[in-house]
Design a binder for these strands. Structure first.
Lengths: 120, 120
DNA sequence: CGAACGCATTGATGGATATCAATAGCTTGT
DNA sequence: ACAAGCTATTGATATCCATCAATGCGTTCG
């Protein structure tokens, strides 16, 4: 708590912002953290850009990283709920998870959506 | 490059996804990373929820963290271009940076824009 | 001026994470 | 069955980061 008396125009219109429910907050942070890495960001864009899925080997080809590193990042995207994997024999197909994509839209929309006339 | 012959239905509709320009990619990662922390996410929500700005002391009151930690997070949000600070005497007023919220929208578009009928 | 105060920076520390080499678990072709 | 190949896991390492205590820098009040 401040001890000095504030200037007259300090925080005249304070708006209370309720914190996110902890579950929603944690899920949002998880999704954001999953994408807050250049490799995973491009990975997700590549996967989400495919009408169908694509197999992990194509992802490995696409990045200049060792295969275990790719697998590590794919796991991170999976655990964030952004992509799903379906295995067929030795091949692993990755695809964007609609639920994760929707959560992402909601998170970012909720942040940028505060479009009140900020005038002044 | 894979050595095995793939199953017939593997990646039949591969869509080429151009990587983001490095500048756009780095800026996106910076913004996502800034928000990929529970404290900073709530901080940004609080700041962006104010019609005008609010002073740093109110932010310190709001979180159960030491003052230097708050200052550290505010600096991160600043450097990501998400918030601006304007000082008046000893008081620091933080407000959402419109350019940052616009960048958020662009990131969102770059991620979700590939909205082709995913229906198989 | 000098003390008190708001905010930022520095230094230190424990925990997370990105990366690769080595390896393991399955599956397929021979 | 056996070898080869695709993917995931483990272990090790270097780096990054969140946090706090201590301190510094302006500013304001008395």
């Amino acid at each position: 708590m401040s001890k000095r008396t504030r200037p007259a125009d300090c925080c005249t219109t304070f708006t209370d912002v309720a914190p996110l429910p902890s579950q929603m907050r944690d899920r949002s942070v998880a999704v954001l953290k999953a994408l807050a890495d250049p490799t995973r960001l491009e990975m997700y864009r590549l996967i989400a850009g495919q009408p169908g899925g694509l197999c992990a080997c194509d992802i490995v080809d696409r990045f200049d990283l060792a295969q275990p590193t790719i697998a590590h990042h794919l796991k991170a995207l999976r655990e964030a709920g952004l992509v799903t994997v379906s295995r067929s024999g030795i091949w692993a197909y990755y695809a964007a998870d609609p639920a994760g994509t929707q959560l992402l839209q909601e998170v970012l929309a909720a942040l940028g959506g505060r479009r009140r006339a900020a005038g002044q």
